[in-house]
């Protein structure tokens, strides 16, 4: 009964689907992205209860579970909270390695802002100050900030 297994060629089928999703950013997120695109401004929002400033701006505070209506303009500068330098390549990466992913605490914000650092990778350290460099062609996406650079 088990003999047939020795002669079996295990076959494999290739999938055919690639699913082209589109995501609605919503009013709050759209205002944030439009400000990046049109005014090179980074907007946050402040929770009326705990006072935390979120960036990108959020419509409500998860911890307090209340609506947020106050907008705050943040300086395009802050400090590196944590980072990693990527050495491997993958098609879904935004740029070619090596580059750094960094969590940046923008001045006046209470949460980290996730972005890229492309230069001076050998000089990176937590606590160093960085500044946003806006990209020349902006279309309303998070990469309208090209990357952050050491100040």
């Amino acid at each position: 009964m088990s003999d047939w297994r020795k002669d079996v060629e295990p076959l494999t089928l290739k999938g055919q689907i690639a699913i082209p999703y589109t995501w609605h950013v919503g009013d709050v997120g759209s205002r944030f992205l439009a400000a990046l695109r049109d005014e090179k401004k980074i907007l946050g929002s402040r929770c009326p209860e705990c006072g935390k400033v979120f960036v990108p701006a959020r419509k409500n505070c998860g911890a307090c579970f209340v609506d947020i209506s106050e907008w705050v303009e943040l300086k395009p500068e802050g400090v590196i909270e944590a980072y990693t330098i990527v050495h491997y390549s993958h098609p879904i990466q935004p740029v070619k390695p090596p580059f750094a992913y960094a969590l940046i605490k923008l001045d006046g914000a209470d949460v980290g802002f996730l972005h890229l650092i492309k230069k001076d990778l050998d000089k990176l350290k937590n606590g160093l100050r960085v500044k946003a460099e806006f990209s020349g062609e902006r279309t309303g996406k998070i990469l309208d900030i090209d990357s952050f650079e050491l100040v």
Binding site: G29, A82, Y83, Y88, H90, P94, Y101, L114, I142, L143
Partner: peptide, 20 residues
């Protein structure tokens, strides 16, 4: 919308934690 552009896969977020 916000994080997928950059944190590609599991490794970068863990690496960030490790450097900290």
């Amino acid at each position: 919308i916000w994080d997928r552009f950059s944190y590609s896969g599991a490794i970068p977020s863990l690496a960030t934690e490790a450097t900290a």
